[in-house]
Computed example of a mutant assay.
Amino acid sequence: MAEPLTREQILDTTEQVLRRFGLDKTSVVDVARALGVSHGTLYRHFASKAALKEAVAERWLHEVSTPLGKIAGEEGSAFDKVRSWIERLVHIKQSKAKEDPELFAMYNALAEESVEVITAHIHELIAQLTKIVEEGMKSGEFQKGNAHEQAAAIFYATARFHHPALAKEWASSHIQEEFKQVWSLITSGLVKKS
């Protein structure tokens, strides 16, 4: 008797099929065929093709948020953690775009179709930053204020360096210098003046 099909097996195979056929041409039948099961079997795990695509997008976004969550949970200076968190986010996104631009574009398109998944992802990222900013306010490193609003401002102020829709700009020879300028501005508003 064959082992029962797991969610992870389905998502792994869906990713492989998406790579082969692309986002628009991939069907549930293609995924089922690659797994050697009927498409009805997949519908027991995912209610629709949209739900399957959302699950793939969610897993991909989780690969971004997990290492960032670890930074948020570390001990140390809040300022250093905010800087490390932003730099890691930028590195993850830019590395994915550079290493496999076609796959990055496909995942970006997949994520754009999954509005609720993207919204949850952004909320998760801002919540991680909020935790760090709150720590900085409590320790006296950062100016007092609304930690959530400040975290959201940091996230959106740095969007040019990590938002997939702006990936073409990442190849600019000035991008690192521009990041330094934005970071300097963030620092001047965040850090408590002595």
Rank of each mutant, 00 (worst) to 15 (best):
T14N: 02
L89P: 05
G73F: 06
M106D: 10
R20E: 09
W183H: 13
A109H: 03
E177H: 12
K131Q: 10
N108P: 02
I10A: 04
A78C: 04
E15G: 13
E113Y: 03
I118W: 07
E149A: 15
T187F: 09
L11R: 00
S27K: 06
K96I: 01
G22M: 11
L5W: 01
V82D: 03
L129W: 10
I86W: 01
R160E: 10
F179Q: 11
R44H: 14
L52S: 06
E99H: 07
A55I: 01
A97G: 14
V90G: 05
K81S: 08
T6H: 01
V37D: 00
K180N: 09
S188I: 02
L89I: 06
T13D: 01
E113L: 04
A120T: 09
A47F: 11
I175S: 06
L23I: 09
L68H: 04
G73T: 01
H121C: 10
H123L: 11
W85G: 11
S65I: 10
H148S: 12
E63C: 08
S95A: 13
K131C: 03
V37K: 03
Q176F: 02
V56C: 00
S188D: 03
W60M: 08
V17E: 03
L52K: 02
S188H: 07
A127H: 13
L5E: 05
L42A: 08
S188A: 07
E116F: 01
V115G: 08
T6A: 03
E177S: 11
Y156W: 15
K53L: 15
E15V: 11
S172G: 02
V133H: 08
L103W: 14
A152Y: 10
S48D: 12
Q143M: 07
E178N: 12
A2S: 07
A167L: 06
H162I: 04
I186R: 01
I10W: 06
E141C: 08
V117R: 10
G76A: 12
K138F: 01
S188C: 00
G73S: 11
A153L: 12
P67T: 06
V90N: 00
F179W: 13
I86P: 01
T158N: 03
D80S: 15
F46V: 05
L185S: 15
A50W: 05
I122D: 06
A105S: 14
G73I: 02
S194Y: 03
L166K: 10
E63T: 14
A147L: 07
D80Q: 15
K180Y: 02
A167H: 12
I122K: 05
I10N: 02
L68V: 05
Q9V: 00
H148E: 13
L23K: 03
R83K: 12
F79Q: 00
S188V: 02
S95D: 13
H163N: 14
A111F: 04
T130A: 05
Q143L: 08
E124F: 00
E74G: 06
E54W: 02
S65L: 11
Y107P: 00
D100L: 05
